[in-house]
Design a protein around this nucleic acid. Structure first.
Length: 591
RNA sequence: GGGGGUGUAGUUCAGUUGGUUAGAACGCCAGCCUGUCACGCUGGAGGUCGCGAGUUCGAGUCUCGUCACUCCCGCCA
């Protein structure tokens, strides 16, 4: 028996033809006489009919058939009578009258129905992922993921990029995320690290003369998980020589546009909007603003600094700031709602959330009494207050204010239903700070990574005022989600050394850790830069999925384990001996 | 490391102030049913109430601990 068609290949054009289908039993409807089976394959569903008059033997055999059995059937395509056409099915105008039935495999009763819109806990689904993946939704998602990768490859191939593989067994690098380590048997006591990204290799490929490289590649980071973070994830990684920011952004825009065209049939129009990091923080409080709605933050520090409201005035005098966000027309939010928002901003360490309801008869607010009429007027103008509005304020250090209000802005937009779920709004965020100060380590750290080039005009301050330096880095943000980021790299040894020094490394340390890079940089390194996209996040947004796990065939749980295989698991003593590893006693039998 | 949520039949859930035999729907099994496509009708099976302690005459219910899943903060160059 050989398959001749997919289920949804069949239509009225094939009436009278003999066909052979193979697939799974979606449902069986036994009428005592005639038996209907909905047969499902990758393409969809077709109804097959077992009728006692047509073929008694086959009809008898069909009694044993159950959900998810794997069948091969040979039969004749028949037009359904007019009053039995099912408009809800692609193949609803026909059915297959079966002449031969082979049960290719039986199946245990599935723990949940193989169909969309079922309500099943995710852990049940992850334990039975092979069944979960049969659902049309996941068939479509994985197909879209495939199409995305294909659209990326075809676009980059056309732009003369070369796909080159880089090692998975590589060197642990300081800074950045925690590494996944792999012990070396041949070199006992030594470890490889799985790459957090192919960053240094792709730079070495530029130095190696390939000029344009790309790779769709797994990366590994041993950090705590989130809805949009898995320990292994896929990057679309690329790097180009002899380019500046504009070249890379242009290629990236073309690539993303090609993906949307090929996968969703949507035309998105590059070039995308640009936003300076400083403006993003100022207006939206976050470096990944969702621009599908407006509701910008307003800095009112200068107005409240001299006011009688001590809480605000003191914060400003101590170098903090006060910002406001205007929830237009939300005057009727209840006290309970506001308490909820106060709790929400507390997550980001905001100590309080002041509010004003702008009523016809004046302000209703616990803080209204502290302001003079002039101050009220200034605030009203600055924030654009109108009757019906509800204004929120946070006063604190800039980091807290921006995080709290930036996230509150997103939260409010969700609650106020301001977000058009069908919109795809891209924005480039550029000119990130090069360094941030790590209070715990008491030193400067790279915001992006230590190979990012500083902005030419700021470079002179690298020793005197590192926090003033901006970088030649850029992130692509889609609907408030960072989907890609990159930078122009340092391509001169002297600059790279100065960077390492600024990060608090001495010569001995950076020679040991990055000597190979420094050597390569002085061997004729071309100016170069690149970008990497999170494939999983991109597909997640394309498919409208709430979690990255929904676009990964076999994802891990929040504790980074696999519910299907029960990985990770204990190693045998023999395995450990070979690697010269002893596992510390786990504190299980402590009294 | 921290905060929140969830955990009762195969699945989704209900379960009163702590009180007799823990229910419903879907699914499953059996019988009947020749045009269904959410097939129908009749009957049936199915439970370590996540796990462990404690309080109590008595715990699905209260307390403590613990585990798993999940959302978030920290973390993620």
């Amino acid at each position: 028996m050989r398959r001749t068609h997919n289920c949804t290949d069949l239509g009225t054009a094939l009436v009278g033809e003999e066909v052979t289908l193979m697939g799974w039993v979606q449902t069986r409807r036994d009428h005592g006489g005639v038996i209907f089976v909905d047969l499902r394959d990758r393409s969809g569903i077709a109804q097959v009919v077992f009728s006692p008059e047509e073929n008694t033997e086959v009809h008898d055999k069909a009694h044993a058939v159950r959900s998810e059995f794997v069948l091969g059937i040979r039969g004749t395509v028949a037009a359904r009578p007019d009053d039995m056409i099912n408009d809800k099915m692609i193949t609803g105008a026909i059915e297959i009258s079966v002449n031969e039935l082979r049960i290719l495999n039986r199946a245990t009763t599935p723990p949940f129905l193989v169909e969309d819109d079922i309500e099943v806990g995710e852990n049940i689904r992850l334990k039975n992922r092979h069944i979960d993946l049969r659902r049309p939704k996941y068939q479509k998602t994985m197909l879209n993921r495939h199409k995305t990768a294909q659209a990326i490859r075809s676009f980059l191939n056309d732009q003369a990029f070369i796909d080159i593989e880089t090692p998975f067994l590589t060197k642990s690098t300081p800074e950045g995320a925690r590494d996944y380590l792999v012990p070396s048997r041949v070199n006992q006591g030594q470890f490889f690290a799985l790459p957090q990204s192919p960053q240094l290799f792709k730079q070495l490929l530029m130095i190696g003369g390939f000029e344009r490289y790309y790779q769709i590649v797994k990366c590994f980071r041993d950090e705590d998980l989130r809805a949009d973070r898995q320990p292994e994830f896929t990057q679309i990684d690329m790097e180009m020589s002899f380019v500046g920011e504009e070249d890379i952004m242009g290629i990236a825009e073309g690539m993303v546009a090609n993906v949307f065209k090929e996968v969703l049939g949507k035309d998105i129009a590059p070039p995308f909007e640009r936003l300076l990091y400083s403006d993003a923080m100022d207006r939206y409080g976050l470096d990944k603003p969702d621009l599908r709605f407006d509701m910008q933050l307003k800095d009112v520090s200068t107005i409240v600094e001299t006011s009688g409201f001590k809480v605000f005035a003191d914060v400003v005098k101590k170098g903090g700031m006060v910002k406001a966000v205007n929830a237009k027309g939300c005057m009727d939010f209840s006290r309970k709602d506001i308490d909820g928002f106060t709790k929400f901003v507390a997550i980001y360490r905001a100590k309080g959330l002041a509010w004003i309801k702008v009523r016809e008869e004046g302000w209703q607010s616990p803080i209204a009494k502290f302001f003079t009429d002039d101050e009220k007027k200034a605030l009203s103008e600055r924030i654009g207050m109108e009757v019906g509005d509800l204004i929120f304020f946070v006063a604190d250090q800039p980091k807290v204010v921006n995080e709290a209000l930036g996230n509150l802005r997103n939260h409010l937009a969700e609650k106020m239903d301001l977000i058009n779920k069908d919109e795809f709004r891209f924005v480039w965020v550029t000119h990130f700070p090069l360094f941030e100060y790590d209070e715990t380590a008491k030193r400067y750290q790279s915001l992006h990574h230590p190979f990012t080039a500083p902005l030419e005009e700021d470079y002179q301050y690298i020793e005197t005022d590192p926090l003033k330096l901006r970088s030649r880095a850029y992130d692509l943000v889609l609907n408030g989600c960072e989907i890609g980021g990159g930078s122009i790299r340092i391509h001169q040894r002297a600059v790279q050394e100065r960077m390492f020094k600024a990060l608090g490394m001495d010569r001995e340390e950076y020679e040991e850790k990055f000597g190979f890079l420094l050597n390569a940089l002085e061997s004729g390194a071309p100016p170069h830069g690149g970008i990497a996209f999170g494939l999983d996040r991109l597909v997640m947004i394309l498919c409208g999925m709430p979690s990255i796990r929904d676009v990964i065939a076999f994802p891990k749980t929040q504790k980074a384990s696999c519910m299907l295989t029960d990985a990770p698991s204990m190693a045998t003593t023999a395995q450990l001996d070979e690697l010269a590893i002893r596992v510390k006693k786990i504190e299980s039998d402590v009294e």
